[in-house]
Amino acid sequence: MEVRTIKVFTTVDNINLHTQVVDMSMTYGQQFGPTYLDGADVTKIKPHNSHEGKTFYVLPNDDTLRVEAFEYYHTTDPSFLGRYMSALNHTKKWKYPQVNGLTSIKWADNNCYLATALLTLQQIELKFNPPALQDAYYRARAGEAANFCALILAYCNKTVGELGDVRETMSYLFQHANLDSCKRVLNVVCKTCGQQQTTLKGVEAVMYMGTLSYEQFKKGVQIPCTCGKQATKYLVQQESPFVMMSAPPAQYELKHGTFTCASEYTGNYQCGHYKHITSKETLYCIDGALLTKSSEYKGPITDVFYKENSYTTTIK
């Protein structure tokens, strides 16, 4: 009895394709271990004539594949690729409408935090270190965002349907971005203890939790000093293409032309909904596939993004 075979390709990165001759009487799992086709788990399936010449994702289970996976995804987590594939199996079914010149995501599976993050990423200057993220990001900007969303979920250790947080998501993504040249110098002034300067680099240099107003941050924000008295913390120097200011959701007025974009969060910790506000020729609110415009805006804002380049204080 002759062994019926077909020729397929296996890959971990969709760049390096490895030619395989597979036995049609055995499952993919018996031949390769966990195997995925377009995100779908085909591990328990036997090869079919229609699979001839198709590319299958496999887990990096030998040295060659491990090197290829690390170079593309910059992670050695053995569960990463499987999590990416199972997320992709959902995100490829989502709709990605162009809204006001940006790629958004039609609401499904509690994905409003991903839509808000995706919209924000198209408006701030950011370059990702893992080629996987950078490639998928370019495709997302062009309207094909399924891979990018699935990668975000995998890097953030999230599953489809789980509630997510924009600030946490951005923080994970910033860790995989090139923020080497970003720098922030802060000064804390206390009447009792004097003053202390701190220099922050990388992710810490672009994120701040405690106030939404970048102007206020430049002037000074009140913080408790270690001595128990009130101290003032203010920005001395900022070198970065953008800054992200966050605070627990509270009524906040966004003035046209003073910011790049913002995240609105309605609801409580267990259950809520994100919308995205962007400042173009007027203010726009993007909620999944829905767009509304207004000249002014007041609502429960939790993150505001500002364009920056270089700032030095005039406070002496």
Rank of each mutant, 00 (worst) to 15 (best):
F242W: 10
T266C: 07
I124R: 04
R167G: 02
E52V: 14
H74K: 08
A69R: 06
I152W: 04
F56C: 06
D135N: 12
A108G: 05
Y208D: 05
V203D: 06
D13P: 08
Y269M: 14
P130G: 02
Y311M: 11
Q195T: 14
A289C: 07
L59C: 12
E215K: 07
R83W: 02
S310W: 11
D77W: 01
N309H: 09
S171M: 11
L212V: 12
S79R: 12
S79E: 06
C112H: 03
G161I: 03
M207W: 06
M24L: 15
L119D: 02
L163S: 11
G210L: 00
F259I: 00
P248Y: 10
L126S: 04
L151M: 07
K158S: 05
N187G: 11
K233H: 09
E204I: 01
T159E: 10
G33N: 05
Q197D: 06
L133N: 00
D77L: 05
A117Q: 04
Q222G: 08
C193E: 04
F128A: 02
A140L: 14
F70L: 12
Y28C: 05
Y72W: 15
Q197T: 14
F259P: 05
Q222S: 13
N111E: 04
Q196L: 10
H256S: 12
T278F: 13
A117H: 03
P60C: 07
T27N: 15
F9N: 11
T192C: 10
T192L: 10
W107S: 03
H18Q: 08
A145L: 03
E281R: 05
L121D: 01
Y208R: 04
S263W: 01
N178L: 05
K293M: 11
P300K: 09
L17E: 10
P249G: 01
F259V: 03
C112N: 04
Q31N: 13
K44S: 13
G33I: 05
V304G: 01
I15Y: 08
Y208S: 11
V206H: 00
K7P: 12
K201C: 11
D165V: 01
C149D: 03
F174H: 02
L291M: 12
Y28G: 03
I277L: 06
A146G: 09
E253I: 11
N61M: 13
Q134K: 13
E2D: 15
I315M: 15
G39D: 09
M24P: 14
K93Q: 08
L102D: 04
I301C: 03
S79K: 15
V67N: 14
V3L: 14
D63N: 08
D63H: 08
T91S: 05
